[in-house]
């Protein structure tokens, strides 16, 4: 059968249209599904730690000394080349703040002095329903299947919509070039460039090499990390036994960092 020019152009046009419309429809109906449909085996370490749903527990009773906090924060910031920038343009992935700031809705004047004066760790909550992912115009921030909310620093355009969207103040923007503010650059983790947003990644780079998050590792049992989807995991067992709080649960973001009280 001979195909004349007219038929060929028609067919080519229709195919293109179907391709474009199909892609648009997929994006609209199942956002991110196309991007996620990549070969599973690309560049994975055999020792990689995997989970259906990663979660973190912070045992506030075990954080008794300033050194414990500092050890966790230093482990995180040194390992990830987080710059130390003084003032209100700072970058932080893991830090401490008072109870009334971390849990503003639980605050009242008569809570025990010990809790009032105790610092609490703050970090990205790796929400199940993350507003930052919803608002990002380039999918530079996205949620992985295992629940980790990730950042692609190479795609981020620096619009800072995610910072407006995050109700936990977990995100920092590189107002300056961060490199001069890093005391010792760790060559095993990339430094960031000017003008992009960054935050805690639940140490996805360490998980990929079979290691638990750095802060958890140095916390001497004050922090736990595990698969919330697994009934028998330690995180599930502890959550069954101890009372826990999440930050701002009324916002519907479903945070996955739990504070054991």
């Amino acid at each position: 059968m001979a195909i004349n020019r007219r038929t060929f152009l028609k067919a080519a046009g229709l195919t293109t249209l179907a391709g474009v419309a199909g892609h648009a429809a997929m994006e609209l109906l199942t956002p991110g599904a196309l991007e996620a449909a990549r070969p599973e085996s690309v560049g994975r370490f055999p020792e990689e730690l995997t989970a259906k749903r990663w979660a973190m527990l912070i045992d506030t009773e075990k954080f008794t000394t300033a050194q414990t906090f500092q050890r966790c924060i230093d482990a995180c910031h040194v390992l990830h080349n987080v710059p130390h920038i003084p003032g209100d343009k700072e970058i932080k992935w893991l830090w401490t703040d008072s109870f009334k700031h971390v849990f503003p809705d639980q605050q009242h004047d008569l809570i025990p002095e010990a809790i009032k004066n105790q610092p609490f760790l703050a970090l990205c909550n790796h929400c199940d329903n993350p507003p930052c992912v919803r608002v990002c115009p380039t999918k530079a921030t996205f949620k992985r299947d295992d629940g980790i909310v990730m950042m692609d620093m190479h795609r981020c355009i620096g619009c800072r919509y995610c910072m407006a969207g995050c109700p936990y103040g977990a995100r920092s923007f590189n107002f300056w070039d961060p490199r001069p503010f890093i005391a010792n650059i760790d060559p095993y983790y990339p430094t960031r460039m000017i003008g992009v947003v960054e935050k805690c990644t639940f140490c996805e780079d360490r998980l990929a090499r079979g290691q638990i998050p750095a802060c958890v590792e140095v916390s001497e049992g004050a922090m736990l990390f595990g698969d919330l989807d697994n009934q028998d995991s330690e995180v599930r067992r502890v959550l069954r036994e101890r009372f826990s709080l999440r930050r701002k649960p009324s916002l519907g973001t479903k945070p996955h960092v739990f504070y054991l009280i």
Binding site: A24, E27, P31, C136, P137, T138, K139, A140, R155, C156, I157, G158, C159, R160, F173, N174, M193, I194, G195, V196, V197
Partner: peptide, 15 residues
């Protein structure tokens, strides 16, 4: 924008 040269990412990765 912090990275204006990446502006077209909004079009390249429509969200």
């Amino acid at each position: 924008l912090g990275q204006p040269q990446r502006l077209m990412n909004v079009v390249l990765h429509p969200t």
